[in-house]
Design a protein around this nucleic acid. Structure first.
Length: 426
DNA sequence: TCTGGGGTCCTAGGACCC
DNA sequence: TCTGGGGTCCTAGGACCC
């Protein structure tokens, strides 16, 4: 294709110009979940594929293939809308273990280039490839090699290259899929100035509205705005957004693997109104969270319960756990108590969520966890032994293989999940 | 159209302490 | 009697991201 050749020649020319300053890549896997499904189902290639929840179960689109996007389908769109826009689409649930596996292979390619990798999500990462005295290779060549190596895995990525994270991120969005957009050092201001403020990561619907109200439409407007005005408007985030708009970001790009919370939530196909059903749902979620905590070797100090009512409004409550804990039986009893703060008979709930936070920063929790395991309970077979055995069965045979007592009553009522978190899938 | 799930971070108000 | 000020921690809610 002539266009691709022209672009390629242009990149060759740019690669002849020495790179001055920091070189940051944002690597974004194109329509990642849908692409993996097309890789695994050759008959689906070239066709509209949608990974998402069922339309009649309050599902939304998780990822749409580019063929489906032509119909106007996009992430977070209600599945019912997507079905109307693209009736011929092939639908599938997510296969998160598989996505995590593919993501891991891509991340391995990035780490093969440099340890300065910051994974943002399952399908995105920043990479610092600033030329050094040891490795003087031009960043454009590194970016092209990464793209080629990723394609050999059977998926594609778009890459933005610039001197800051925000420039790289904005650049990666300019040409998708399979794009490589380079913003040369010195040309950042010209590149950013005309873009709408909403394009900047960190400016959502609320901040956009506030900025528009005082006449700030573009990143150029924002960069030139008065600091006190913006910080007065957006608080601490204002400081960060100004720095981003002015290319004054200097934080190093390093792996950031500290987990701060583990949660599970479910929107029900039909609102729940009975205490039994709600408690059964809570017990299921408590068990899932407990198992994921144990798998990660985490002990939490705070337990939270969240509900969403029929009118879509939400409330939450949290309580300290006494001792750092990963035990769903402890969670369950406390959550049933907490439910009284958020729900009275007669109220319909469309969603319930459970989350645990407050992990020790050091590896102290892991040591506590190991210590705890050797603690036998009163009846000889400890609850911990039971949980560990259950964990093993569920790892091997799947989520529905084993359920405790009252969880059984929930069977068939669960909407299933379209979580992006790989750990959440069997 | 009728609105998922898993996260992170910030804010405002109140409790509590000195 | 009517009254401080600052620091820190906790809670609930919300913005934002993918």
């Amino acid at each position: 294709m002539a266009n691709e050749d022209a672009h390629s020649n242009e990149l060759d020319a740019l690669a002849a110009i020495p790179w001055v300053g920091r070189a940051v890549l944002l690597v974004d896997l194109d329509a990642f979940f849908a692409s993996v499904e097309q890789l695994d189902h050759p008959a689906w290639r070239g066709k509209p594929v949608i990974v998402g929840g069922h339309a009649d179960r309050r599902g939304v689109v998780s990822t749409a293939s580019y063929e489906a996007r032509k119909f106007g389908v996009h992430s977070a769109m209600p599945s019912a809308t997507a079905e109307r826009l693209c009736p011929e689409a092939i639908w599938t649930e997510g296969h998160y273990d598989r996505y995590r596996e593919m993501s891991g292979k891509v991340m391995a390619i990035l780490y093969d280039e440099t340890p300065h990798v910051q994974q943002v999500s399952i399908d995105e990462a920043f990479v610092d490839i600033t030329p050094t005295s040891v490795n003087r290779e031009h960043p454009i060549l590194v970016a092209r090699r990464i793209q080629e190596r990723v394609e050999q895995l059977g998926v594609t990525c778009s890459i933005g290259l610039g001197t800051t994270k925000s420039v790289a991120k904005l650049a990666s969005d300019m040409d998708k899929p399979r794009g490589l957009t380079v913003v040369m050092p010195g040309s950042e201001a010209n590149f950013m100035a005309p873009l709408p403020v909403r394009a900047l990561s960190g400016i959502g619907a609320a901040a956009e509205k506030k900025l528009h109200a005082i006449g700030i439409e573009t990143l150029g407007d924002l960069a030139n705005a008065d600091d006190d005005v913006i910080i007065g408007l957006l608080g601490k985030a204002g400081r960060v957004m100004l720095d981003r708009a002015r290319c004054e970001e200097h934080a190093p790009i390093e792996p950031d693997d500290e987990v701060k919370s583990v949660s599970n939530e479910t929107s029900f196909a039909v609102d729940l109104t009975s205490r039994d059903d709600i408690e059964a749902a809570i017990a299921t979620m408590a068990a899932k969270v407990g198992r994921r905590l144990r798998r990660k070797g985490l002990l939490g100090r705070t337990l939270a319960l969240k509900v969403r009512y029929a009118d879509f409004s939400a409330r939450s409550t949290q309580r300290p756990l006494g001792e750092p804990c990963d035990d769903e039986f402890v969670f369950k009893d406390m959550l049933f108590d907490m439910l009284d703060d958020l729900w009275q008979p007669g109220l319909a709930l469309r969603l319930v969520g459970v989350s645990v936070t407050g992990f020790d920063q050091s590896n102290e929790s892991e040591q506590l966890s190991l210590f705890d395991e050797s603690d036998p309970s009163d009846d000889g077979v400890s609850r911990r032994d039971l949980q560990k055995a259950t964990d093993r069965v569920k790892e091997r045979f799947g989520e529905s293989a084993l359920r405790y007592g009252r969880e059984l009553r929930m069977h068939g009522t669960d909407t299933g999940t379209t979580s992006k978190n790989p750990a959440d899938y069997k």
